[in-house]
Amino acid sequence: MKEEYAIVIKNLVKKYDDLIAVNDISFKIKIGEIFAFLGPNGAGKTTTVEILEGIRKKTSGQAFVLGLNIDKRKDLEKIKKIIGTLPQEFNTHENLTVKENLRFWSRMYAYSLPVDDLIALVKLEEKTKAKFKNLSGGLKKRLGIAISLVNDPELVFLDEPTTGLDPRARRETWEVIEGLKSQGKTVFLTTHYMEEAQVLADTVAIIHKGKIMDIGSPTQLIDRHGGENRIVVRCNDQETRDKIHDLLFNFGPLENEDGDIVISSKKGALSKVVDLLDENEVAYSDIITQRPTLEDVFLSLTGEILIIDEKSVED
């Protein structure tokens, strides 16, 4: 019988002396979905992934990968044959070329995909003869993704695949990850980028201080914790801003970090606001409605704003 879930975790705990890195977490990941583990550095994302990959011991709990129990040696051997991994700090032979590195990792498996196909998949055709040490951060990550796919895995763990990349390289990596889903692979993605989780993931689990705060699709999480839509009124000077504040006093206006006036978007509120501002000839520059994001969800669940520290990515 075909497994319904790629990963099943029950009451997983990882302790380091007094520190609880993973605190009694439980969740399931369906086959073929992109699952994002979203949380700040040190939340326990990488620790969980490494336990599932078999390179870190758990303290207690149970975990099954594609129906195989990580506690059983024979099962763990099988797991390693059918998963692909991109570690957070990915490194390979620095003096070997892209192609040579792919060949090297291919030879770790009994079955492997053609190296040229993998190169094409991550669009590295122009760099096949470039040594790993001479690649940019983005190209290194792309090679890492290609390496994680050499054995045509059913499940791919991508640990912070876009950390440290510029926006363009990040979007290119997203395209590759979306391509994996279209191939029917299950992707376990850890990230601290809200946008990345929102764009890519079918299911998001928000983890904070080792605990899962909530789990669901981005829409479900936003509906549950994101609050209402907002109306954002943009203006260019302080005088106008003060005037808008006074006019929208009954709506409970707030000011965001860009100096925009933000109010809750209740039913019919938008037309009332527009009418009010127009009647009073307020020279606002723009007025938009905004849906809450995962950032709002995170703030709501943890009471903290997710601060991204690019330099410290070790979980």
């Binding site: 490494e50 990959e53 078999g54 390179i55 051997e77 390693k80 044959k81 998963i83 991994t85 570690p87 957070q88 700090e89 990915f90 490194n91 390979t92 990792w105 770790m108 498996y109 009994a110 054995n151």
Partner: peptide, 13 residues
């Protein structure tokens, strides 16, 4: 230190 060994450890070798 580079983490290479742990990447290797996640393969069947």
């Amino acid at each position: 230190q580079t983490g290479f060994i742990f990447k290797l450890a996640a393969t069947p070798i």
